[in-house]
């Protein structure tokens, strides 16, 4: 039984899984943050809208929207602050070797 909410959550879980694979595979802290970016934007968006569709329109949906808004504003700031600390403390980004 595939309804709108489960379909949306499945799409979101796909993006979350991709982000987790990226966090394992990518070589350094800067590129890993890009993988986290996918989770923060699309993965959260699809899963949370899926959950919002589950019960129909209630007040909880408004709050889910608020959570989404908060995550979209807050997570980039954490990434920014962490990476800035990394760069200032001498972590050099991984660079592809020229062949």
């Amino acid at each position: 039984m595939l309804t709108v909410d489960t379909l949306l959550i499945f799409i979101g879980l796909f993006f979350l899984t991709v982000a987790a694979i990226g966090v394992i595979r990518l070589p350094d802290v800067f590129s890993r943050s890009h993988a986290l970016g996918i989770t923060d934007t699309l993965g959260n968006f699809f899963v949370l809208t899926g959950v919002a569709f589950y019960q129909g329109l209630t007040l909880a949906d408004v709050k889910i929207f608020l959570i989404l808004l908060a995550l979209w504003h807050l997570n980039p700031v954490i990434s920014h602050a962490t990476l800035r600390a990394a760069l200032r403390n001498g972590v050099r980004p991984w660079i592809k070797e020229k062949k």
Partner: peptide, 8 residues
């Protein structure tokens, strides 16, 4: 960054 991902 990993912890941030876990909290999300």
């Amino acid at each position: 960054l990993g912890l941030n991902g876990i909290s999300t």
